[in-house]
Design a protein around this nucleic acid. Structure first.
Lengths: 156, 156
DNA sequence: GCTGAAACGAGGTAAGC
DNA sequence: GCTTACCTCGTTTCAGC
């Protein structure tokens, strides 16, 4: 994970559809070297996937919520593979504190959201926080030690 | 947004690096038709971007937290473009309830996390929930009305 | 939206440093 | 480990239907 790997990660986090050739131009490395490095990042599990991001509202999801689940008894959303497969559940995090997990849920309507809450209730006490807007939807990961971009040399 | 658009979204959410030709094979549409539809989805803002996802731990981020900010006074993280640019702040959501916003923060160490909390404190009361693990990191958006995949016709 | 053709670009390989 | 050169293949784009 040197500065060249981070340069590649920066570009691929910004635009996952860049070709190896275009990447090679941006990071000033030859295409074969770029291809090898990217494959290494993939097989090492540093890159977990390439995903198109879809606008929730334009996809008809007008309700976004974070639900804190306080599970009790034998059932828990963390242990139930069924809940993890519900299409309206986009993320599940196990957390510290009073709650055992936090779910990111998106639905088309409040009616659908109410249905989700009803289906979650048997697992424990759901506490919903509605998302009004999202000023920052996503940020790419940057290198820990401020690595200087080596892509702006005069050798173009 | 017909079923063909959703088929393309399904594939691109799963693998954003697929070529138009490969997409055309998977959804059983000609490459030019695929290219036109994808560009329409991009310009319409349905697709907001294509992003490589990076493993947080492998990128050296061993601390993941959700921070509820109860802002007071004139300053608020929602209004401050500086906080939105902090590299350790990956998401910011404005929410209902006691808190005004929830931040997803990742740092290399607890020491760095403590520093983030200190820098957030002037904006309001930060309440941190640590993420222990993430059973479901991300789920692709699926069509609202169960759309039957039209890609399995016998005309291959 | 499909087909066909043509041009362009991309990706992979191998040799050399 | 990176680079350059080459070659093959795929992809993209445009035409017309």
């Amino acid at each position: 994970m040197d500065s060249m790997d981070w340069a590649l990660l920066r570009e691929l986090q910004d635009d996952a559809r860049l070709s190896y050739s275009e990447l090679s131009r941006r990071v000033h490395l030859s295409p074969p070297a770029v291809a090898e490095r990217v494959r290494r990042l993939e097989t090492a599990g540093v890159i977990t996937g390439y995903h198109a991001h879809v606008d929730l509202t334009k996809a008809g999801r007008h309700v976004v919520a974070l639900i804190r689940m306080s599970c009790y008894g034998p059932r828990c959303v963390l242990r139930d593979p069924e809940v993890l497969n519900w299409p309206e559940v986009l993320e599940v995090h196990r957390v510290t504190g009073d709650a055992c997990s936090i779910l990111k849920v998106v639905t088309a309507s409040m009616e659908d959201f109410e249905s989700t809450i009803d289906r979650l209730a048997p697992y424990g006490q759901p506490s919903s926080t509605m998302v009004l807007s999202t000023p920052l939807r996503w940020r790419p990961l940057s290198p820990l030690s401020p690595t200087v971009d080596q892509g702006s040399r005069s050798s173009e």
